[in-house]
Design a protein around this nucleic acid. Structure first.
Length: 566
RNA sequence: UGGGGCGUCGUCAAGUGGUAAGACACAAGACUUUGACUCUUGCAUUCGUAGGUUCGAAUCCUGCCGCCCCAGCCA
């Protein structure tokens, strides 16, 4: 079952370009895209945008394919554990690369040959300036750079030096292969960019075979070309790199994919870069890459998000070139939409308040039938135990109820969902004056939740039998940061805006027996509270739920408004 | 005094010369054994701004303003 919104076909400027190319038979009618992550961290919701775009386009076009290619040209940052996690995440999101799994490192030999070819064409040279000197020679944003004194080495010397770089004869940083383009270009990327650097680091796939590694600009365009990619989609910050992407392919006269850039995703109240997410993980601010507060794919999965919800979210936000910052409510809405249809309803009390129903026989217990879904009878019903002692939500009782509060209060009558009407007769407090227990009476005629005399009660509350309920721990998650854009303050580190209340663990929640029996990974709705799932660390004797998202809460809004007025 | 982008509702986003889609948010109301869901209604005489072309401009032209990205041997 799925709630994918296919009826609204995605349409954006990239798909428009591709459709036009197809009409003009530009690539013999082929569409080949690729998703090219660097295996240096976990995928996040921003990557999901790119995954949905690239794999989505491939899926939408007959014969379209999307490659998964690991852009592993910097072994000092990359690990095999990340390539495994990334594959897992892409699959989980619902996409399939078939046999099109590649690595830039697969092409190291070819890339090396292309570099040699460039040298032979007089289009690349070995520069022996230090990193610092290269920076100085590069010029500034407003001033042109200067030619390297090594720029006019002979082809023979360049060839010799390059092969010796490869052979490991030189120290890191002593030499570098550069493209010979234009040191006065207004585009810094064209000022003789680095192509190969010496890195005496072993690579997660090629081991110690190489001690020189190609740079992104060189490796990426050629990898695209080698794989016969037709449309190479990337984010806006690579716009400046496109002339270089084109330069390599034009000079080498090889298949030339079209690079198209789109705006990356920004979401309220979070950060969206692998570097920053890594800081949160490494600094212990969260409990790993899959911490449910993290907007990583694995974090969202553990939190209880569905692939469908994430895909729908990506469709909703669209693809364009302007900078954007999406409301968190859009993401939340996408999971509510999906789970509203799919999730079984159960009852669970987060902050228990005990009620003793004084006119309910002490030794009586009964099973009450409760529907699993209010709109979908096919989801059936279950039997829920009821007895004289029950728990209700502490927040559902107020000793002095304000206007419009239609839950429980002294002398008030409410409905217990699918059970009975009860009336509060007495409030019991502890020494500090805190309400610790309620005494009520019930109306036996109201069994099932309606009264034969037709009288109305405004409030309906969830409840759990105290004798039968199962104790559970529940993690309530809130946004990770307290401000919309934690990265906007240039004087403060983004971590200063971490929300101390982003995780609140409730240890003494009580849930109905059937809730405790759900499968890991299955989502349920605790009525009136929100959507939850079992955490991956949940055990039979220590049940742990994660709150995925709350239900929309009009009452809280009303209360806040009343608060403002007072 | 460099180069590259972008400016349409609070937030996203359609629109590509014919008179401003949709989504989220928000507001009002209906329904309701979840204050949920669902439903109804409202929400840009206006498209950064000033001119120009045109019968007609968010769409074409010009000037101006604002915002973002680029000086890794990261991707």
């Amino acid at each position: 079952m799925t709630t994918d919104k296919k009826e609204t076909a995605a349409s954006d400027f990239i798909r428009a370009i591709i459709a036009k190319d197809l009409r003009n038979n530009k690539n013999n009618g082929r569409v080949v895209t690729r998703f090219p992550p660097e295996p240096n961290g976990f995928l996040h919701i921003g990557h999901a945008k790119s995954i949905c775009l690239n794999f989505g386009i491939a899926r939408e076009n007959p014969g379209g394919v999307c490659h998964l290619r690991f852009d592993d040209t910097n072994p000092s940052k990359e690990e095999d554990a990340y390539v495994q996690a990334i594959q897992n995440d892409v699959k989980w999101l619902g996409f399939d690369w078939g046999d099109k799994l590649f690595y830039a490192s697969n092409y190291f030999n070819q890339l090396y040959e292309y570099a040699v070819k460039l040298i032979n064409m007089g289009k690349a040279y070995i520069c022996s300036l230090s990193a610092e000197e290269i920076r100085q020679y590069r010029g500034t944003l407003t001033e042109p750079g200067k030619d390297s004194p090594y720029r006019n080495r002979s082809i023979e010397e360049n060839l010799d030096l390059f092969s010796r770089m490869r052979a490991g004869e030189f120290a890191e940083g002593s030499h570098i292969l550069r493209a010979k383009i234009d040191m006065s270009s207004g585009n810094l990327n064209m000022r003789d960019p680095a192509i190969y650097r010496i890195l005496k680091v072993s690579h997660h796939r090629t081991g110690d075979k190489w001690c020189i590694y190609p740079m992104y600009d060189f490796a990426h365009c050629l990898s695209d070309s080698i794989e016969n990619i037709t449309h190479s989609l990337c984010t806006l910050e690579f716009e400046d790199h496109r002339p270089l992407y084109d330069w390599f392919l034009d000079v080498l006269k090889v298949h030339h994919p079209q690079q198209i850039e789109f705006a990356r995703l920004n979401l309220d109240y979070t950060v969206m870069s692998k570097r920053k997410l890594m800081q949160l993980v490494d600094g212990g601010y969260v409990k790993g890459w899959d911490d449910p507060r993290m907007l990583t794919i694995s974090g969202l999965r553990r939190r209880g998000y569905t692939p469908t919800a994430i895909r729908n979210f990506c469709r909703t936000i669209g693809i364009a070139k302007r900078e954007n910052r999406i409301d968190m409510t859009v993401l939340e809405n996408s999971i509510r939409d999906d789970l509203n249809v799919l999730a079984k309803r159960v009852m669970g009390v987060l902050k228990p308040l005990k009620i003793i129903i004084e006119n309910y026989p002490e030794d009586q217990e009964e099973m009450l039938e409760v529907a699993n879904h209010p709109k979908n009878p096919e989801m059936g019903s279950r039997m829920v135990p009821f007895c004289r002692e029950i728990y209700v939500e502490h927040d559902d009782f107020m000793e002095e109820p304000p206007k419009k509060f239609f839950r429980l209060g002294p002398g008030r009558e409410v409905r217990l969902r699918s059970a009975y009407f009860i009336t509060c007769t007495r409030v019991i407090k502890d020494d500090n004056g805190l309400v610790v227990e309620l005494r009520c009476t019930y109306d036996p005629a109201s069994k099932g939740g309606s009264s034969p005399d037709g009288r109305k009660v405004k409030g309906t509350m969830h409840w759990v039998s105290a004798r039968h309920g199962v104790r559970a721990e529940i993690n309530l998650y809130d946004r990770l940061f307290t401000v919309e854009n934690p990265e906007s303050d240039k004087d403060k580190d983004f971590k200063e805006f971490l929300n101390p209340g982003s995780l609140v663990t409730l240890k003494d929640c009580i849930v109905e027996p059937s809730a405790a029996a759900i499968n890991p990974g299955q989502q349920v709705q605790f009525e009136r509270q929100g959507y939850f799932c079992l955490d991956s660390t949940s055990k039979q004797d220590n049940i742990i739920f994660n709150r995925i998202v709350t239900l929309r809460d009009t009452w809280t809004k009303i209360r806040k408004k009343q608060g403002v007025k007072q």
